[in-house]
Amino acid sequence: MSTKPVTGTESRQTERQDNWWIEPLFTVLSLGLFGIYALWVAWNRQHFEYGPYLSPFYSIPLPGVHAKDLEWLPISPAFLVLWIPLGFRATCYYYRKAYYRAFFWDPPACAVPELRRAYRGERAFPFVLNNLHRYFWYLSVPVVAFLWYDAIRAFFFEDGFGVGVGSLIMLGNVILLSYYTFSCHAWRHLAGGCLNCFSKHKTRYTLWQRITRINEGHGFWAVISMLSVWFTDVYIRLCSMGTITDIRLF
């Protein structure tokens, strides 16, 4: 049986008339710029703290360890943190869609021809490693827990409890990161998706349903949480540099 499509229906150029290129362009720009910014922040090793505020790039997920205590390290302490969210996002099902489309053009958009002919998918190195996504999820949970600790600490100034704009930004950031982390497909599977009989596991079924609800917006949480990490670091950095003043609401 011949399965090759007939010549004449094949076209190396898409006939799509909509602006399909906007999504991959946005992905290239946002991921590219964020990647460059994250590397610069990590190498910079300055202005990551202001008062009770700590940049999420420098939130070390080890009890009692603060980034400024690790200045003796030959590498930036940010690298002790960054590999975890980097691995989590690189293997995330949403980001996989985003970077396969935008960076590898596999495909750039639906029904748009690809550039390269060889394709092995996620069956061979390096993309077969995407199957380890759940392990990065395990590691991301303590990172988020420490970010919650940092966000709560951001409400305790030298003169006691207070609320600054930075406190609210850090709180908003960790809420968005929590949504992203706990809407993960691997977590959804581990929590209950692996079961066939939900009726025998009511608690896990309820948990699975709740994860499913936020999982529907996993892509949204992925993008918005990345932007919030970016914004939080920029805010703390500008406060630390004296460029802007943090406003204490009370």
Binding site: Y93, K97, Y100, P107, Y119, R120, G121, E122, R123, F127
Partner: peptide
């Protein structure tokens, strides 16, 4: 494993 989740 061929599927790369591009959601088309």
């Amino acid at each position: 494993g061929y599927c790369n989740i591009t959601k088309c």
